[in-house]
Computed example of a mutant assay.
Amino acid sequence: MKIKFGVVMLLFFMATSCVKSQTDKVQVVNATIFEEKMKEDGVQLIDVRTPQEFASGHLPNAININISDPDFEKKMQGLDKNKPVLVYCKSGGRSGRACSQLKDLEFTTIIDLDGGITDWQASGKPIEN
């Protein structure tokens, strides 16, 4: 019985430590918190959707860096790694991949908009064209 309990506890700690290491440095936040973070000094707001999606409406002051662009990583390396990077897409999938890449590039503060611009708009937050 003690051995089974010990094995279960060991597996639990291994699983939770793996989850933590994957999420370190990346904060996934709702639209309200994301909007507050946008007001902070020195933030870099990145829309990782296509240029066509960006043109149809985007968050104020966002920069479009398309994750499907072959030069995506090179463009991201042009950002300041020591300033917060706020990332969003349509619903969260592409921004999640972008955040993983930013983490690999050793950015210090990475914030992902949960639900993307879809949830942003559903919350009644402003966009611009």
Score class of each variant (00 low, 15 high):
1 M>S: 15
1 M>A: 15
2 K>V: 02
4 K>G: 08
5 F>C: 03
5 F>I: 15
8 V>W: 05
9 M>S: 14
9 M>K: 10
11 L>K: 08
12 F>N: 09
13 F>I: 05
14 M>P: 02
15 A>I: 07
15 A>D: 07
22 Q>G: 01
23 T>Q: 13
24 D>N: 14
24 D>K: 14
25 K>L: 15
25 K>S: 13
25 K>D: 14
26 V>K: 10
27 Q>C: 06
27 Q>E: 14
30 N>K: 11
31 A>G: 08
31 A>P: 11
32 T>I: 06
34 F>H: 00
35 E>N: 01
38 M>W: 05
40 E>N: 09
40 E>T: 13
42 G>M: 13
42 G>W: 12
42 G>A: 09
45 L>Q: 00
45 L>T: 03
49 R>P: 06
50 T>I: 08
51 P>F: 06
51 P>G: 07
52 Q>C: 01
53 E>Q: 13
53 E>D: 15
54 F>D: 06
55 A>P: 00
55 A>G: 09
58 H>L: 03
58 H>I: 09
60 P>I: 06
61 N>T: 08
63 I>Q: 11
66 N>S: 09
67 I>H: 03
69 D>F: 09
72 F>M: 13
74 K>D: 07
74 K>L: 12
76 M>C: 03
77 Q>R: 15
78 G>I: 07
78 G>K: 06
80 D>K: 15
81 K>M: 06
81 K>E: 02
84 P>C: 09
86 L>R: 03
87 V>G: 01
89 C>H: 01
90 K>Y: 15
91 S>T: 15
91 S>W: 01
91 S>K: 13
92 G>W: 02
94 R>N: 04
96 G>C: 05
96 G>H: 00
96 G>M: 03
97 R>M: 15
98 A>E: 06
99 C>W: 01
103 K>G: 09
103 K>V: 02
104 D>G: 03
105 L>G: 09
105 L>K: 11
107 F>M: 11
109 T>I: 07
112 D>V: 00
112 D>P: 01
113 L>F: 00
114 D>F: 01
114 D>Q: 12
114 D>E: 13
115 G>W: 06
116 G>V: 00
116 G>Q: 04
118 T>V: 12
119 D>K: 15
120 W>K: 07
120 W>V: 05
121 Q>F: 04
124 G>F: 10
126 P>Q: 02
126 P>V: 00
126 P>H: 02
127 I>D: 11
127 I>Q: 11
129 N>V: 13
129 N>Y: 07
